[in-house]
Design a binder for these strands. Structure first.
Lengths: 211, 211
DNA sequence: GGATGTGAATGTCTTCACAGCT
DNA sequence: AGCTGTGAAGACATTCACATCC
């Protein structure tokens, strides 16, 4: 299999969500044009994205909604569900713990850790916050592939190292630092301040820009 | 000015953060190679990114840290501060309201709105949650360019329309919907579930992939 | 007829490599 | 000598356009 661009994967993920919308509206079939319109892209882009993985449509007709949905879930690895641990029980951690969008997609937060003894023992949405020092022992018992880091920036690298040491293979990092991890580990970084800075740049330069 | 790629702007924003780290470590000068190492990119990339905006370095020496910092802040439009409104006072809204990373960069959350009467009147970090119906009147008094949407998905488009109607020019959207806005409006979308799906894809496909 | 799937063309971004300053 | 700044080359991503098939 040839390397698929990150941008392609992200669009596939969007298409999946759009398909759910089409399904709930009762559409049985959808065209690349309709999918493109929802996502602000082009029909050629949609077809090209899908073509890396196979031929899922019927010429003259479009794509069968439930079928394409299943194919995308398969491509994205969403036929299984994932147990996920969350480190950092601050405001952001709390927001993430209760966020429905994760569960809906099969990402179950099964444990929350924090370093602060005042937070340990708190109950977040049926999960009790545990001491971060338990991470190693807990993960040695149950295989966890994905962890979410929502700690302060200065703790994030240490937590990342320990999670990786405990067998985690993918990290979603909300702390505002670039994490150094082995090549075999996948990291996605959500940097909210950076998004605002990009908005600031756009505000400043829109007049002189195209598009 | 020629169109600058989004990826370039995002890297500039990172360089700025790295410069602050170098400064706090006492470095007066930094090379493109050092900046690149922090961000997992290449020195050529750093120099090319900067070259779109001018020549800020000294050959044989590198870049003066405070000087480049100032230049980047100027490029990104961060010499001014921004008043920002936040719509949605749920868990995520609360987390965003207290998040220090915004203030540090000159983004001040000056008002929070919610539709739920039970939340209206709550105090978040010295700001009292206001009824969303006040948005129009409030924004007609003070010019607000940036708004953050942290509402449930089904309310986000309506809120976006109203914010844009009230003069907002840039939106940071945390709701899991693609917002339709006029071309003149800039939107950045933070989609946390999508990031997890990208991790899922990576976990599933790493063995067959390069890099 | 109508929409897909896909080579080819185009456009964009990144990397190379070296001339040019300091 | 050392590191920047930058055209040119290369890699990658998107768009075009049309043959193909339902």
């Amino acid at each position: 299999m040839t390397k698929i661009a990150d941008s392609t994967v992200r669009r596939l993920s969007q298409y999946l969500r759009f398909l759910e919308e089409f399904e709930s509206l009762g559409s049985e079939t959808v065209s690349s044009e309709e999918l493109a319109a929802k996502g602000g892209t082009t029909s050629a882009q949609v077809r090209k994205d899908l073509s890396f993985f196979g031929s899922f449509g019927k010429r003259g007709l479009g794509y069968d909604v439930p079928d394409l949905k299943a194919q995308l879930r398969d491509i994205l690895g969403l036929k299984q569900s994932y147990n996920v641990v969350l480190v950092g029980a601050g405001k952001l951690g709390g927001a993430l713990a209760q966020y429905g969008g994760f569960k809906d997609r099969g990402f179950n937060i099964v444990a929350i850790y924090d370093r602060d003894p005042r937070r340990v023992g708190e109950r977040w949405n049926a999960i009790i916050v545990r001491k971060d020092s338990e991470i190693e022992a807990d993960l040695s018992k149950s295989r966890i592939e994905i962890a979410i880091i929502a700690t302060p920036a200065d703790a994030a690298q240490e937590i990342a190292d320990r999670l990786v040491g405990a067998g985690v293979r993918a990290l979603l990092n909300f702390a505002n630092v670039t994490l150094a991890v082995p090549d075999s580990i996948t990291v996605k970084h959500v940097n909210m301040a950076l998004e605002l800075e990009a908005l600031s740049y756009a505000l400043r330069n829109r007049t002189t820009e195209r598009r």
